[in-house]
Design a protein around this nucleic acid. Structure first.
Lengths: 218, 218
DNA sequence: AGCATATTCAAACGTTTGTTTGAAGTCAAG
DNA sequence: CTTGACTTCAAACAAACGTTTGAATATGCT
């Protein structure tokens, strides 16, 4: 009874193909070929193409969350350190070349043009991360900061991480493929946390302009 | 001889439809229906679907660039002010509800999953903006800063702008639709420039932690 | 072994896709 | 009015799509 193994192979091939080509361009025949299965396997195991797509989405997000969990901090861990850990976790989830490299592509595609079927990805996957970041930011910002300003700071931090995920091809072409490929996750974590913590005033700014330039910019 | 007007109508309908549905899902029948033209109009004026898509991309980027040009600065304009202008121009190009609202969607789709046909969008559209930003950043950062570090800072700034474009549905759902819709472009410009200039040390940081917290975070 | 269930397979189904065709229509110049 | 180039149209094209079918094969149980 090797039915379950073919089902799994189809699911994996589906995720890979959907991520690469998108929902419409990926054909059932191509998926089944990639899985070494018959065309009817999709109908037999998943019903139809759309259900297969949904299953691939769920699989991707579960695998991703399990593979790179949020760290469990000690109660006395300073917020600055937790921010660095958060950035690292997010970047790893987005960029790391895990065994199934298509997970991130598939999730990205959903973010760019959200299918109604996968709308709950936000609630199940994004919201929890958002709450963690919110806790960190509230501790870093002065009391009495409005909720909107908190969100804006959160967006500023998260967006820097998402950039290297969404605009990988563009960024790569812009700064040169060689140079771009030398950017390790550690390097990005260091830059983003330093940039953000400097903006909040917790580390030295990246530049130290003369007092004159500082005044002129007001 | 109203041939050119139908061609234009097809082009506009194509842009709208491609942006809304994506390349594969948008059918030439739907596009021609939207333009009130016959199905053969695509072949007659553009050759085939792919050429029509390319034409729509070019049209979108030209219209966008012409509608919201980069400001021409006086030679003595300080870099901090130019950065604010740059952020505003970029945000307006990305977010402003211009008459043809589909331009940005189409360009976004290309960035998310670049077609080989539209690869030169990077060279023609992104590269010039990148050079402008590079000039600003080089003036803000201390001399001797490596080119890679310059790119990283540029990415940090641009990514904050792109975020509200790419992840509009997610951000909206996250902070609540009401609150999100109250975010004006001016508000975003103010936040992003302040956050970035604070990171570089040109304005006061968003938070002023106690000396103790600052030391503890090292 | 023999039966029953689960899985695989090749073939065909009806639709829809992008594209092509050739005739019909439009309009200005001779 | 006739000509000729330009534009529109309905109809049809082959190809590819997702899906279904029914028989063939494998597997597990008594």
């Amino acid at each position: 009874m090797d039915g379950d193994v073919t089902k799994q192979r189809v699911l994996e091939s589906a995720g890979k193909t959907f991520a690469e080509k998108g929902y419409e361009s990926a054909t059932v025949r191509e998926i089944c070929d990639g899985a070494g299965a018959n065309i009817a396997a999709v109908n037999y195991y998943f019903g139809d193409k759309q259900s297969l797509y949904l299953a691939a989405c769920v699989e991707a997000q579960c695998a991703r969350e399990g593979a790179i969990p949020m760290p469990q901090w000690q109660p006395d861990t300073p917020a600055t350190e937790r921010l660095a850990d958060f950035v690292r976790t997010l970047l790893r989830r987005l960029l790391e070349d895990e065994r199934p490299a298509w997970h991130r592509q598939l999730m990205l595609r959903e973010m760019a043009s959200p299918t109604e079927a996968c709308a709950h990805v936000v609630e199940d996957y994004i919201r929890p991360m958002s709450m963690v970041l919110k806790g960190i930011i509230e501790e870093l910002l002065p009391e009495g900061t409005s909720e909107v300003d908190g969100f804006l700071v959160g967006f500023s931090i998260v967006s820097q991480c998402l950039f290297y995920h969404v605009n990988q091809p563009i960024a790569s072409r812009l700064m040169g493929t060689e140079e771009y490929n030398r950017l390790t996750i550690d390097r990005l974590v260091a830059h983003i946390t330093r940039f953000s913590l400097a903006a909040l005033g917790y580390v030295e700014p990246l530049a130290k302009p003369s007092r004159a330039a500082q005044v002129a910019s007001r």
